[in-house]
């Protein structure tokens, strides 16, 4: 099992979701985060106050998948999150020690396998 963490542009988040659903990746967690990835800073002005926005809004996806789902998931994110400009984000694939599905008590591969009757 792997945990895939992807940081993407907020404006691409919907595309990523669509691509993941098309790739039949069903279970995921999304959060709004801020970060800096070397893109050009944005300058904003509020009356006399001019500021450089060092942190950009990003969206973080966390997806626990079984091993054979890693490549399709990464491909789906790569293709949907890319604009070609600096700041498109990163995908991290992390090893996972254990997974529990809380409702059923299933563990590991069973816990990250989507249920046939879920819906």
């Amino acid at each position: 099992m792997k945990l895939i963490v992807a940081i993407v542009r907020p404006e691409q988040a919907n595309e990523v979701l669509e691509a993941l659903f098309r790739a039949e990746v069903r279970g995921l967690t999304v959060s709004r985060v801020q970060g800096h990835g070397g893109e050009l800073e944005r300058v904003e002005t509020y009356r006399g106050t001019t500021v450089k926005m060092e942190l950009q809004d990003k969206v973080r996806f966390e997806i626990g998948v079984s091993n054979h789902f890693v490549e399709p998931t990464v491909r789906a994110i790569m293709s949907s999150a890319r604009t070609g400009e600096v700041g498109d984000g990163k995908i991290f694939v992390l090893p996972v020690e254990r997974v529990h599905r809380i409702r059923t008590g299933e563990t590991d591969e069973g816990a990250v396998t989507p249920l046939a009757d879920s819906g």
Binding site: Q34, E44, Y46, V51, K52, M53, E54
Partner: peptide, 10 residues
Amino acid sequence: YTHGEGAVLL
């Protein structure tokens, strides 16, 4: 709706 985090005065 600004957050202010990461805004550096210029």
